[in-house]
Design a protein around this nucleic acid. Sequence first.
DNA 1: AATGAATGAGAGTTCATTCAT
DNA 2: AATGAATGAACTCTCATTCAT
Lengths: 211, 211, 211, 211
Amino acid sequence: MGSDVSTGAGRKARGREERRQAIVDGAFAVFARQGYGQACVKEIAREAGVAKPTVYNHLADKESLYREAVEAAADRVGARCLAAVDRLREVEAAADPRAGLGTAARDLLRICQDEEARAVRRLADAETAQFPGLAASVRERTALRIRSALADRLARLALAGRLRPCEPETAAEHLLALLTGPLEYRPDADPDAVAEAAVEVFLRAYGVGRG
Amino acid sequence: MGSDVSTGAGRKARGREERRQAIVDGAFAVFARQGYGQACVKEIAREAGVAKPTVYNHLADKESLYREAVEAAADRVGARCLAAVDRLREVEAAADPRAGLGTAARDLLRICQDEEARAVRRLADAETAQFPGLAASVRERTALRIRSALADRLARLALAGRLRPCEPETAAEHLLALLTGPLEYRPDADPDAVAEAAVEVFLRAYGVGRG
Amino acid sequence: MGSDVSTGAGRKARGREERRQAIVDGAFAVFARQGYGQACVKEIAREAGVAKPTVYNHLADKESLYREAVEAAADRVGARCLAAVDRLREVEAAADPRAGLGTAARDLLRICQDEEARAVRRLADAETAQFPGLAASVRERTALRIRSALADRLARLALAGRLRPCEPETAAEHLLALLTGPLEYRPDADPDAVAEAAVEVFLRAYGVGRG
Amino acid sequence: MGSDVSTGAGRKARGREERRQAIVDGAFAVFARQGYGQACVKEIAREAGVAKPTVYNHLADKESLYREAVEAAADRVGARCLAAVDRLREVEAAADPRAGLGTAARDLLRICQDEEARAVRRLADAETAQFPGLAASVRERTALRIRSALADRLARLALAGRLRPCEPETAAEHLLALLTGPLEYRPDADPDAVAEAAVEVFLRAYGVGRG
DNA sequence: AATGAATGAGAGTTCATTCAT
DNA sequence: AATGAATGAACTCTCATTCAT
């Protein structure tokens, strides 16, 4: 019943949970733009459309704000990547995997290149000293989750004889490495070309005889 | 003989250039430990064994300090990596490249895993907003330099028929990706195992029939 | 009737505007005592009974503080002088102006000799370089305003035939000069004597035959 | 002999006294430009063409520098004014004093309007708190000296019957006030007009019947 | 629950001044 | 006597955080 119609008064003051969301999202936007050190709570409040003390009503302090914002964004990015990998499920086990892998690879790469994913990587590693567990937590929510999902798919392909027998986790790491590694050298490279080359090389190493 | 003139006395107040070096090095140590935002100039001065204003006598402000420190460290890391790659020159063109590549790969990986290299990566990306050109500058001094050197070696091997004909820059990216990519998932993985797997996969994709 | 709502409690945390007033007044007191350079914001805050950052909540920086403080004080001094001049209105046009002018002269001189007016003069001229428009602004609020008001009165007297025909602005300048000029040589001279001499000389130059 | 040809070596490193002069003059230039607070010793040194510690070899500290610079400049201004007044000596006692007074008045006014004299006034009053005796010292070297000299001349004129009998110090104050007072309202007024009006009014009040 | 205002703590930076050469 | 370099002491200003409303 009228669940998400919010307060009725107007556009802004929704339920408590939505308000909290707005703050965390605003925080991510500001942190992504300015980094932890340069970001100031006042601007986060402005971005979220609330007053500064309201921020403190929802989150304990600037550090919590950072952790929550980064982890939430990591979840979003991880979910998007997972969806891309999961589309591999639809590939017929009997079919040539090249096309399916290529599509997934392109989609993944596009996600890695968008600003949100870059910001998550940056923010997760940036403040290692002040946020000891954060990098690992983000890795858990993104890289490891993706690797795991991809390993599942590769294991099925290997079982179906479309890939050599291999250690699926390692194979997944290698495919992902071939895919995202080149971004180190050319962050804005054409994702299609990079993806195609990655899959090509991956299949040369992991594919079976024909192709 | 007898190195320079220097102070004669001993340990501290050497020439202006050495003093500057000490400051930049101290800055890197502190930034690596605490990040840009948490680091304070006072501590950098203490680390360098000088008074705070002396820092400002040598470098204009905290920002310059950061840039200089990070770029200098990037140069050091880049140089070490380059040396590892250059040891490939000694590999006989006629020999099986596996052993040589394996050695270089292990050495590179060890460098990437040490604290200095990790700090350089972290610091270069962390403050994108405040230091717009820094990430690119560091990439130039490390990744791109290494890729270029490795591409040179791979090109020779291809020319000697020990590798398939290939685009050397891309091949280098792929080898480096296979090497360092797994660190995303297991930052403290055993470098020997990772290196061996990387070279194995690389040679399956880029090697020639036998070996 | 009960003034505003205000705190009820009593002496300190009144409305925003009063707080601001307290800060500006405190600033003037400190600047008057120490000059711009020696004054420190910490002491201004203490003088105003607030914490240092509160000062910055109300005024952008030390420079604004100075400008506001000096201009506000100039307005106060100007108003007091104006009141003294305006008391001349009550002089009957037909009467001998000597007594009226004498009273006004004495009053003006006393104002010029008090610490607030001296401080305004000093502070307005002191930092010409850092506050380019300030001296002119203060002149506008004090000297020019006074001259203008006095010129009005002298013009009426001239029209009534109690003074020679003259250019009122110039006559006013001359009277004021005769009045305040001697302070250059004897800052603490007896104001009554100085005022009397000034009026005497002025009337000899500007008065009509008899008196 | 060869007294003031200086060191012979070249243009800069003159005798100790000249070096000191250069420093004090440089200090005045910088203080006049920036005020005491904003002026920094480094710039004074640069202006004088010496290194910073050399400044401290000649003058104890920044305060001495200020006092010396301001007093020296006050002496220069005072001397120039005195010369202008002293030219009144050449006026024949029997002649109409109007012309002579007018010339002296114009000359004095021009001096008061030039940048050096304005700076002296400004700097003498600006830092009352930090330099308690300075304002009085400068007054002594300028205003009082000038008043005294002018009073001498006026006394002679009175004695010669060209002016009414009067108290010469007061008369001098009045003439000087009529002269410089208008600068309060119009700092860049035409000196000739102001001087003429001042003398006119002065003579109306202090002159004898005819002229 | 939300805000305007206030504050304690601390950072970067500057400068007058002093060694050591 | 003159300088390059170093330093101790301050100062302005900012910010995360908390009252009082």
